[in-house]
Write a protein that binds this DNA or RNA. Structure first.
Length: 114
DNA sequence: CAAATGACATTCT
DNA sequence: TAGAATGCCATTT
């Protein structure tokens, strides 16, 4: 609860729990772009923890302030979403992400600079 | 402290 | 190309 500002600011600070770091990184995903669970995990220094990232986003208590809908599977598949996959796809389209039937066009991940 | 769980990723059929 | 089988990590029981 004390890292709230950092999280919403997209600031990953040592001392935060894994999930909090995940949320912080998620905030740094520019609108119109998407990142894979694996990319987020790697950015946090834990390559292979993609699955754990999914768990964190699933429990994301700061939605929609934390754009968890910008995180997709490695193939660009719209894997899971608390509010329902259709909702997730809709949000992405709103932001201008090219979607094609439960699949988004993968693009190089560009973390927002602080 | 061991076992189970899940919004993943990779590889093999 | 689609579906099943394994491996992985952090969190929750």
């Amino acid at each position: 609860m004390q890292f709230l500002d950092d999280i919403l600011a997209g600031r990953v600070v040592p001392g935060m729990n894994f999930n909090q770091k995940v949320w912080a990184m998620t905030v740094r995903i520019p609108a119109g772009k998407v990142a894979t669970y694996g990319q987020v995990a790697k950015a946090l220094g834990s390559p292979g923890a993609a699955r754990a990232v999914g768990n964190a986003l699933n429990k994301n208590p700061y939605a929609p302030r934390v754009p968890c809908h910008r995180v997709v599977g490695s193939t660009g598949s719209l894997t899971g979403f608390a509010g329902g996959l259709p909702k997730k796809q809709q949000l992405l389209i709103e932001e201008g992400v090219a979607c094609a039937a439960h699949r988004v066009v993968m693009d190089r991940v560009e973390w927002v600079e602080l």
